[in-house]
Every structure is written in structure tokens, then in C-alpha cells.
Design a protein around this nucleic acid. Sequence first.
DNA 1: AATTTAATTGTGATAAAAACACTTAAAAAA
DNA 2: TTTTTTAAGTGTTTTTATCACAATTAAATT
Lengths: 236, 236
Amino acid sequence: MQKYSKQTRLLLAVDCIVFGFDGEALKILLIKRGFQPEKGNWSLMGGFVQPDESLDQASNRILKELTGLEGVYLEQLHTFGDPQRDPIERTVSVAYFALIDINKYKKQISDDYHAEWFTMKRTPKVIFDQQEMVELAKKRIRYKAAMHPILFELLPSKFTIPQLQNLYENVFNTAIDKRNFSKRVLATGLLIKLNEKDKAGSKRGAYYYQLNMHNYYSKFQAFMNFIPNPDSISAS
Amino acid sequence: MQKYSKQTRLLLAVDCIVFGFDGEALKILLIKRGFQPEKGNWSLMGGFVQPDESLDQASNRILKELTGLEGVYLEQLHTFGDPQRDPIERTVSVAYFALIDINKYKKQISDDYHAEWFTMKRTPKVIFDQQEMVELAKKRIRYKAAMHPILFELLPSKFTIPQLQNLYENVFNTAIDKRNFSKRVLATGLLIKLNEKDKAGSKRGAYYYQLNMHNYYSKFQAFMNFIPNPDSISAS
DNA sequence: AATTTAATTGTGATAAAAACACTTAAAAAA
DNA sequence: TTTTTTAAGTGTTTTTATCACAATTAAATT
């Protein structure tokens, strides 16, 4: 037996929703699509899965080809398979989301790849069913971040507690009491205080912290609760 | 433009992990595969996605064709795309999991479809990478059930609180204090007490309850916490 | 030296979770 | 009919976690 005869084959694509945080707002990365249809319109990072690569490999390759990003947090989100989602030909798309430190790649992305960051509120129209993908990705990162420390992926390796709080307040669109926040964050044992201050944000300066990677991996599965009233969190 | 030329098309399949609970243990449903390769070996319910159907439609169709099940809880789990996962020809598979009331379909399944239920501990070897799918599905249902009332899908429409507790204890492999459990469960407002008892389980008999469907839908997204120390829950 | 700005720190009140044991209904056995 | 057996049902106390809340400090700027 060589093949499954009589079965129809179809195109399989990967689309990546790339999240970044610049200290101000949560943003996503879009690119101007380089081929027809919808050429020149804003799109997620996407491409076809090649015969010899797995889905994870495809998503990593596509992300690298279109943005230069490598070794970032990348997780499968959902597969979209409406028969009509691509007007040219049936294409099923496996969506991934990525979390990156926006500043680490900022110049590279805009100079070399003509990708652009957009705030959630001012996202342009994207092609096909990609708006649905973005919405689902937003839900998923809230959902997951409410329980696991994934948002650290969005920060530089050295960060301050006010920066971290700002990130959480952004993602969950809520205000958090800073005394309670720092207590909880420090209680996780995930942070190591450095003898160095970030003077950019204030006159007094805020101490830098970095992740305790050992605890990060061992406690990743543990439920966290940085968010006071997680009403806004909805299922994946 | 008619097609994306030069791109390789591939086979897309759907595999369903069907969970059931018989009052004793959590089980999964397997079927003897009806075609080559691996014909006659135990397998998840699977089949190829047809040209005109969405992924949700395909999973529902396949579940119905192979087990007669219809209208059950079915949710996309993950897409598996290792190039070598099917030895005959590259096939990417979208895995779904289903939750059903085992007794409702028991006879139908074994009489008409030659599918069989297996406890988690005594699952036979399944084909390809399906063991990985089953493991992931188990993780996911724990994860989700720790926060959302999905386990009710595994029970008959009328059930007792001891039955419900037994189910939770099984899924999470933990003992729960019955006073605390019933307090929490009743506090959700999800249950309606009936004037009828189940006499099968004990001499005294336990009152039947049924789901308050209105509250079920409105509170589905709310986080629940029936499980005392959810250490065993790991990410999706 | 005074002012400004944001970082840092602690405590008491309230709510939720956990630990814990006896009573009761009803069938079965004596 | 009485006693025994079995699992269902129910309350309180203790402990822990969460929430609300404000004064002090470091360091640059005026």
C-alpha cells in the first residue's frame, strides 16, 4: 500500500500572532502580505507547511523568514478549517501565538522586514479569518497568563516590578494595588532582585529583577493569581 | 488566479478522543480500525476531512459514523503534524475530545459499532501517535474541568452529589471531603434538587440533582474550584 | 535646601478554604 | 419488630488567602 487513494489533499498553512509589549501597551505584529490574493494588505505572519516539516518547525521557520525572530515563545493556538476561509483554494491554517520582548527585536523588524506593531485598539483590517485568530489569541493569553507566568516572555531579561505590574494591568485591562501586587509576585519565588536600578522611569529608580529560571520551570504549572477579580478571563 | 501553484497538498484527518464515566472510572472509547495500515488494531475514532466540510463538521460526522453519537460535547484539542506520524502518507490530524454520558450510549456503541471502553490504566496500544493525543486530552480535561463545569457532560441528566464527587475524585485522582465538596458544588447555583432518590448506591438513597441549564451557560466561564490542591493540573 | 516624583514597605479587616465528626434514613439481618 | 449496617446528609472552628488602605524613602530637579 502506497497511498490513501480516493482522499482529497488540501493546503495546510501556519499563521502566527506575535504579541509584544513596549512598556505602554500590548501590541501585535502585522506584515504586508507579499503575494496574491490580498497582496499588500495587512496580515499575520503566515505561510504554507512544507512536505518535510512539522507544524512547530513550520511556524518557527515562517516567523524567522518574515521577522528574523528565532527562539521565541511559540505555542499552537487552534486550527481553522472553514472550507471558504481562503477564496482561492481551500487552505486549513494552524494558528500559533508568539510572545516576544518587543525592544529586543524592534529595529530588526521594522528595518529589515517591514513588519509593524499595532496596539490592540488600532489594529487594521486583516485578511481572511485572521481577525478571529487574533481574538482567540488574546483570549488565550489572558487565560493562560492568569495561571502561568508566561507574560515574563514579553519583558526584557532585566525588568522592574512596576514594569511587570504595568504589563499585567495592560493585558487584563484592570488596575492592581501595587502593594498587593509586589507581595504576590515576590511570594512566588520567581524573581531574583539585582543590585541595579532602572533610572529611566523615575527619580528614585526601581530595582531590576530577573527570573529565577529554575523556579520558573519548576513552578510553571502551578496556578498563579496575580489578578484580583479575573472576570474578564474567558475560556480558550 | 485559480490556485496556489507549487504548493504541496496533504491529507487532513480528524481523531476523536471520547471520554466516558460509568460511575467507577474515567474511560476512553476505542475502535478496531477498519482499513490499512494497522487494520484491526485499536484506534481512536478517526477519518479524513472531506472537501466541503469544516473541521468541526468533520469531527461530528466521524463520531457519528463510527459510534452513532450525536450532539455531544466536542472540542478541538490540538493538531498533530509530524511528517512521519502516518507511515503510508503524510497526514496531519486535528484531534478533538468528546465527553459523553457512557450509559446513555453504552448498548448502542457495543452492539452496533464494535467500539469498546477502556479504563485509563488498561488502555491497549493505539496506532501512530494516538497515545500522545490521549495523554494530551487527559491533561486538557483536567485543566479545563478545574475551572469550568465540563464534567457534568459525563453524567446522566439526573445525578447525585456522591456520584458527582466520585467523578471529580476520579478525574483528579484525589480524595475530597464530602462536606466541603457538597457545600462548594451547591454554592455554585448550578444544581437543582429533585424530589427523587437514587436507591442504587445506598440503603438510604441519595437525592437526584439536575443542572440548572440557565446558570450553567451563564456561569460556564466563571472559574470554579472544586479541587482542594490542584497540583496535578498541568497546562494544555 | 526645598520640591517633586515614583518606589518601597506593613497591617488590620474580610472572605474563602480546609479540617474535622456526628446524626439520619432506610434497607437488611437477626 | 428490633437491631444492625451502610452511605447520605449536615455545622462549626481553624486556618489561610485576599483585599483595602497610607506613610515613608531615595534621588533627581529646582
